[in-house]
Design a binder for these strands. Structure first.
Lengths: 187, 187
DNA sequence: TCTTGAATAGTCAAATTTAACTAATTACAA
DNA sequence: TTGTAATTAGTTAAATTTGACTATTCAAGA
């Protein structure tokens, strides 16, 4: 058996939890996993193909998943992954830990807000109105997404969370732009 | 003059905007910049010391900032940075672009929510209550932070945004835990 | 039937990011 | 006065991440 201590360590993060989780319900091949992440989880997590493949390799080295290759017609061979018993145990441990865990929310877009006073009032207002419009569109998209029937329970739940956050961002921005329009904040 | 085209390109992101922005009001040395980020911007952006130094070097190579060294007693020499004219122009351009810009909110903590059904109902509820408690504490911290007088206008504004988002997360989680407690969701 | 685009399955060089380290000075409590 | 922690100012080796690339197959329209 391979010496686990000499292996590059596994990060204890959401990405590992995601990959293990996707394999609990069924075996999947690499392309399938990446496709699911791209199509269904665009709002939930940012995980690129190359990173996923690298993590899958590492999970296999740690024996949390196992793979076998499958040929389909003349297609390139697929590497199909399944969860091992250790993998399933690890998944449950990670899941409990991360569900319990709470972390500071760091979201993009705050630095420009922080320095917005450096922009002339008119230009500032124009820019913020544009951001507002885009944000409204984003909320509309996510609302429609949530109605799609192909969203399974869990994905729906986490999408609902993101929507709640995005709506809050919208409300906050609306309020601020309103103040600016009524001239309440301009010095 | 150095050939800018052969230089490693500058990312157009929040970090660059932040460093330039911190130098608009005053000259600052490296330590001062990193100290400010750590103390005041912990909620706003995640930028580590080493990354900041690397970006400062690059900004200087691109002539957006200039530096000179200063000796204070027997202390290690400080490298003091100031914004150049090009730097100021670039700052305003970046600022307008980023204020206008809207980006999907990807926040940590959603993957465990997505898979929470895999946990026995009792354990799930315990874990979520723990997360709720921590989240309440986080909101309390941020509310107190917002009252501190040393927060300047801009920092206050962006902190208020984060607080709005964190509160939304809290409300969402409260609602969900409530449903679970009343047994509305358990299958 | 020919072309175009999507599906399929990755790999790899290059850029980015950070944890850990170095090293001197000063302030302060014990 | 002695130890300890904070201030000061970075550097670097190592890990992580990703954009760009390679190739083949299949489906469907022109």
């Amino acid at each position: 058996m391979t010496d686990l201590t000499s292996l590059p360590p596994l990060p204890d993060d959401e990405r590992v939890l995601l990959l293990l989780g996707l394999l609990t319900s069924q075996e999947r091949h690499g392309y399938e996993i990446n496709d699911f992440i791209e199509r269904q989880l665009g709002c939930v997590i940012d995980l690129k193909k190359a990173t996923a493949y690298q993590l899958l390799d590492r999970l296999e080295q740690h024996a949390l998943i196992a793979s076998h290759t499958v040929q389909h017609g003349a297609r390139p061979t697929r590497k199909v992954y399944r969860l091992t018993e250790e993998g399933h145990a690890h998944f449950l441990k990670l899941l409990a830990a991360q569900l319990r865990h709470e972390e500071i929310l760091i979201v993009p877009g705050s630095v420009s807000i922080m320095f917005c006073e450096h922009l002339p009032a008119a230009e500032r207002l124009t820019a913020l109105r544009e951001r507002l419009t885009k944000l409204e569109a984003r909320v509309a998209i996510q609302e429609r997404l949530l109605e799609l029937p192909e969203l399974t329970g869990g994905v729906k739940l986490s999408t609902a969370r993101i929507l709640a956050l995005t709506r809050a961002d919208l409300e906050w921005l609306r309020g601020w732009v309103g103040e600016l329009e009524r001239g309440e904040v301009v010095p």
